[in-house]
Every structure is written in C-alpha cells, then in structure tokens.
Design a protein around this nucleic acid. Structure first.
Lengths: 136, 136
DNA sequence: GTATCTGCAAAACATTTGCAATTCT
DNA sequence: AGAATTGCAAATGTTTTGCAGATAC
C-alpha cells in the first residue's frame, strides 16, 4: 500500500483513501476491471463510495498516465495499469480479456511518419483455447 | 453501386436500399464514420430513415464480416470497411482517426499459443503532425 | 479558511428493444 | 400470404455534471 502511495505522490496526486484503493485494485488484480467492477468491490470496504468518485479517480489516473482504458465494442470500458506496454487477447465467444505475452516491434514505435506515438494498443480478437474445446 | 450490391449478395444479405447506402457510405468515404455520421448523411437522401435501422444494418454487416468497429475511449463507436487489415492512428489532441500504412507481422497472426486469431486491432495514439505544429 | 475531494441525484448520451407498419418475394 | 425489413418511441446502461457537504492542508 505504501508503494501505491508513492506512485500517486510521484505524479503529485494527493493520495486519498479512494484513490489509493482504486489504483491498488487495478494493480493488484490486473484483470482489466470495469468502473462497475471497481465500484462494487470498493463498496464492501467503503460503503459510502459513489460511482462518480470511481469515474473521477479513473479519469485522474488516466490523465496522469498511470492507467489506460481498453474499449471493446458493446462492452463497458475496462482499465489497466500502464506498466510495460503489452498486447491483449479478447475472446469473442466468452468475453475474456487477457494480457498476452507477445513482443512486437510496433509496441515500441515512438514515431510514424511525422506523428509522435505516445501509446500503442494491440488487441487480438478470436477464440480462446477453452472455447474451442467447448464448441467441438 | 452494383459492386456494393454484389458484396451484399455474396454474403447472402438482401440488398435493400438502406443496406446499400450504409455500406456504400462506409466504403466510399472510408473515414471511419460513427453511426450518427451515417444517420445524418443518409437523412438527406432518405428522410424517413431511423437510427435503429442504421444500428441494425451495422450489426448485420459486422456479423457478416464486412465491416468492423473501432472504439476510442470517450467517443462514439466508429466503423470501417474490412478490406486488408491495417493499423490506425488516433490523434489525442484533435481527435482525428486515420488509416496508417504500417505493415507489421502481428497484423497477420492467425494463432497465438492455442488461441485462434480472427482479427487484429492496432491503434497508435499520439499527436499528429498538424497538432505538433500548432502547439509550437 | 480555503482549496480539494466526495456523494448524490439528475442529466446526457449512445445503444437496444418491442412492436406495429411496411415492403419485398 | 408469409417472411424480412423498417420506424418509432420507450427502455436500458454507461458516463457526466452541478452542487452541496465533508475533508484535508
């Protein structure tokens, strides 16, 4: 928890309880939660927390480059901690979203033509191992 | 327009006027329109068209693999024709979304581990040439 | 004491749904 | 006629907003 606090302070974000807990949730679980996931989980610890605070906090963390959002058509936005950039795999059958260990030169691009690149999103879509078995 | 009709028929989709026009819009302009863009444009030609029809049609085209959707956090979903898979560049400053001529081996991956890949989305985010000039 | 942060409820917005009317074959 | 397609209006679900109260510095 002290590490989380340090992360916030390094970005000059006041480390309030809510912010600590939202960021901790994302970093610890690293399973791409939606704002609703975070809200529901934090409700058990902080009964009075409101959705607006969760959204506020996520925007704040995103503006400060600590987290980024992943959007899947037709689904709620999900958030992930911005450690090393990595690719994602989304199963169009069961909806699972997983980190993928896939190194690609495009993840490291910092310039294309005259455009500056600050972030690269790579999302593979398809059918995961489990779902292939199930449909056989 | 006859080509558009053939494309629909090749997927066994009945080529109604609305469907022809939605698909034509996406293919001709290829500037990643939102459902609202399409709706507003078609309104001038077909005054009675409804949003529901636009959404219906887009889902139908997507299910049949003719178009795919691109979602940018905080923005409406955009649609693009599914020709050769290509990468996108999104300017976080002005909001422009452009096709990018960037070949990468990851765009051709069909399998990662035991996961089948049916689609790869690569979106570079950053600041475009114009916006760099403007902020100087 | 002032600025920041939070909760609440309402509003805004994109998207979906149910159903009746229309159109096509 | 029968099936597919469409329009409308209401419903849904997510995200944002405004403001009042609470909290931190």
């Amino acid at each position: 928890m002290k590490q989380i606090k340090k992360i916030l302070e390094s970005r000059k974000i006041r480390p309030s309880l809510h912010r600590l807990m939202v960021l901790e949730y994302i970093i610890r679980r690293h399973n791409h939660p939606t704002p609703e996931d975070i809200y529901n989980d934090l409700l058990t610890t902080i009964p009075a927390i409101s959705r607006a605070t969760v959204y506020n906090t996520l925007h704040l963390l995103q503006e400060n480059g600590l987290v980024f959002s992943i959007t899947i058509p037709g689904e709620e936005t999900r958030y992930d901690y911005k450690g090393d950039s990595h690719a994602h795999f989304y199963c169009i059958h069961c909806g699972a979203l997983r980190d993928i260990d896939y190194k690609c030169s495009c993840l490291k691009k910092r310039k294309i033509g005259h455009n500056l690149i600050t972030e690269v999103q790579v999302c593979f879509r398809g059918i995961c191992e489990n779902c292939q078995k199930r449909t056989k």
